[in-house]
Design a protein around this nucleic acid. Structure first.
Lengths: 157, 157
DNA sequence: CAGTTCGTTCATTCCGTATTGAACGAATTT
DNA sequence: AAATTCGTTCAATACGGAATGAACGAACTG
């Protein structure tokens, strides 16, 4: 079991990412690309992280969708390259904000169907949803303040 | 399967909570208490949500630790009562901020051990950690703006 | 002080989903 | 056009942690 700081970081990033509810391998890939600094292929990820080709593809694409990783097509090479986005703050916060907003809408939609005799409960739920919505708003505000990441190409709906 | 808005909300809160990486039952309990508005016992949760006593106890205590739920001791009753905190924003954001800060520290600690020839990687990792730290700061700022929740009694370390 | 009624704990079971590996299509190469 | 070399997909598996329920201690009750 290697204990080099580099491996340690990759391992830790994996644990952190899975603690946040995501696939562990996605965090490991991000850590790996962050360390390497230059585009790496799926095959290189498989070799370095000892994972299957399927996992490498799926999780790299996941990170790409989140805007944390960018895919490049080096001329003269047939394989795709994956590169950690220098400053992923923008994409990361935006995706969190979006999720909060969806959850807020979902909750208030449901509470709108409450029967009249549950007006008090309806208000409490609405207040709760409002907190989610405010949090999303504030995230957007913060996102705007730090500005978009350099070299970002996120195309989420 | 009942489709009343009330049951629907409880179910949805459970799914949302688990989507954020937590136990589904915790979200369901929060939804239930949010709807009821008044203190409810573990036995009532078991009955309403069809869950075991152990789950009720464990998850209620989890919510209590997060400062989202408050425990009360009604005089004359031997059972504890659990009550949804009116405005949990403060506790919720604070716990998120704390986790971000822990993760940021963890990452920069590891990157500090990088060998000299990896100075460039070290800098990228440090930048990444800095983003986490900034996010935590940002959460605290947001927390301060909305002010502490009414009736809060969170005692996290 | 025996008998309840609580809340908590913990070994076990169960379930969701991450991971795998083989199969496939597309694009290249010889 | 056959043969490679890519990336993706998907059914099967493995694994981590959620949920259970029995056991336990503590606090009350009669």
């Amino acid at each position: 079991m290697s204990d080099s700081p580099i491996d340690d970081l990759i391992q830790t990033m994996g644990l952190m990412w899975s603690a946040d509810g995501g696939p562990r391998i996605a965090g490991q890939i991000l850590g790996y690309l962050l360390i390497e600094g230059e585009p790496r292929t799926l095959a290189q990820m498989c070799e370095a992280l000892q994972i299957s080709k399927g996992s490498a593809s799926t999780n790299a694409r996941l990170l790409e969708a989140k805007g944390v990783v960018r895919r490049v097509h080096p001329v003269g090479s047939r394989q795709d390259g994956f590169l950690a986005v220098p400053n992923p703050s923008h994409s990361l916060l935006k995706s969190v904000a979006k999720r909060l907003r969806v959850q807020a809408d979902e909750i208030s939609d449901i509470s709108a169907r409450f029967p009249d005799e549950r007006a008090d409960a309806q208000r409490r739920i609405a207040d709760f949803a409002e907190f989610y919505r405010q949090s999303a708003d504030f995230m957007d505000e913060w996102t705007a303040r730090i500005g978009p990441a350099r070299g970002e190409t996120a195309q989420e709906s």
